[in-house]
């Protein structure tokens, strides 16, 4: 495996994206809204497409805003349909995101003349190319460092999410634990829901512009679920989930470079391998976790039988 500074940047960017997602993912998992990450990351497509068609350029700010709006609308529509139409929440989520996704596809194909947008870049991202877009060259200890734009953006998003989670820790905890109780105590759990969804949408958009929606979906859910198997402390769960996310980012890129080579192939997509690595970490934890692992449970059960 040959490692260049570009690889370091890829890992840094992937880790930042993964960390930003994992922070919020804890509360999605605890609220039993995990699939919302999946829904939002598919549903932002029309937002991107409309921003492209209106501005006629790959201006990242308009794209960002368009996608974020589409993401928040997904949450709002899902809520509406399940409330006014009395449809199961999962089903209403599915309807909303597939419809928005179809709309996005249609818009992209229709506007293909003046828009250069490939839907697959939304899925996979282009993390391998992100380090090339350098915007800042500070000098540290005599070393000049070339900081890519994406790294700065994602660092900002991660920081913002971290501040959000810390500042609203108590509100997030109580409204996720028991929304009715939170409401009777004057903490508006609906407001918390929409705040969280807005942040998920913004994070999703910020991340998959560079790393693709697979990482977003995987990193929202898998690290948080893994951490949930390891601890009974909420703050520890949040910390662990971020560590697991960073770990799968690093492992993911390394394995993207090395694993295909074992079988005599060239390298493969980092985003895909990050998701796979997160899945491997999850499976390991699921089997061997000290308290809630499958093996431990099995041992306990057989002991109980004896």
């Amino acid at each position: 495996m040959e490692w260049y500074s570009i690889d370091t940047w890829i890992v840094v960017i992937a880790a930042l994206a993964a960390g930003a997602c994992a922070l919020l993912g804890n509360f999605l998992v605890l609220r039993k809204m995990s699939m919302m990450g999946d829904a939002i990351s598919h549903a932002v497509l029309p937002g991107l497409a409309i921003a492209f068609i209106v501005t006629g350029a790959r201006a990242s700010l308009s794209m960002f805003i368009g996608a974020a709006i589409a993401g928040v609308l997904t949450a709002v529509f899902t809520q509406w349909i399940s409330r006014f139409g009395k449809v199961d929440e999962g089903a209403s989520m599915g309807i909303v995101f597939t419809t928005l996704f179809a709309l996005g596809l249609l818009l992209i194909v229709q506007g293909a003349d003046h828009v250069d947008l490939d839907p697959s870049c939304v899925l996979y991202g282009a993390i391998e190319l992100t380090p090339l877009d350098v915007v800042w060259r500070p000098t540290l200890f005599g070393l000049s460092i070339e900081v890519p734009r994406t790294a700065l953006v994602l660092a900002g998003v991660t920081l913002f999410n971290a501040v959000f989670v810390v500042a609203f820790f108590k509100e997030l905890r109580i409204s996720s634990f028991d929304a009715e109780l939170a409401t009777t105590m004057g903490i508006d759990s609906k407001l918390m829901h929409y705040l969280l969804m807005t942040l998920v949408a913004v994070t999703t958009v910020a991340c998959f512009e560079s790393v693709g929606s697979i990482i977003v979906i995987a990193m929202l859910i898998v690290p948080a679920a893994t951490a949930h198997l390891l601890t009974d402390r909420l703050w520890l769960m949040v910390v662990l989930s971020v560590l697991i996310a960073i770990g799968s980012a690093a492992l993911g890129h390394m394995s993207a470079l090395t694993v295909p080579a074992w079988f005599g192939f060239a390298d493969t997509s980092t985003s895909g391998m990050m998701a796979v690595m997160a899945g491997l970490i999850f499976s390991t934890v699921m089997l061997f976790a000290p308290k809630y692992g499958v093996l431990q449970r099995f041992v306990k059960r057989t002991q109980a039988v004896k």
């Binding site: 998992v29 039993k32 809204m33 995990s34 699939m35 990450g37 999946d38 999962g90 899925l123 996979y124 693709g212 697979i214 990482i215 979906i217 995987a218 929202l220 859910i221 898998v222 948080a224 679920a225 949930h228 993207a256 493969t268 997509s269 985003s271 895909g272 391998m273 990050m274 998701a275 796979v276 997160a278 899945g279 999850f282």
Partner: peptide, 17 residues
């Protein structure tokens, strides 16, 4: 929900890889 999300993203990630 989390179980579905995990399987979905990991399998799809593997597919993309």
């Amino acid at each position: 929900d989390a179980a579905m999300g995990i399987v979905l993203s990991v399998f799809f990630g593997a597919g993309v890889a």
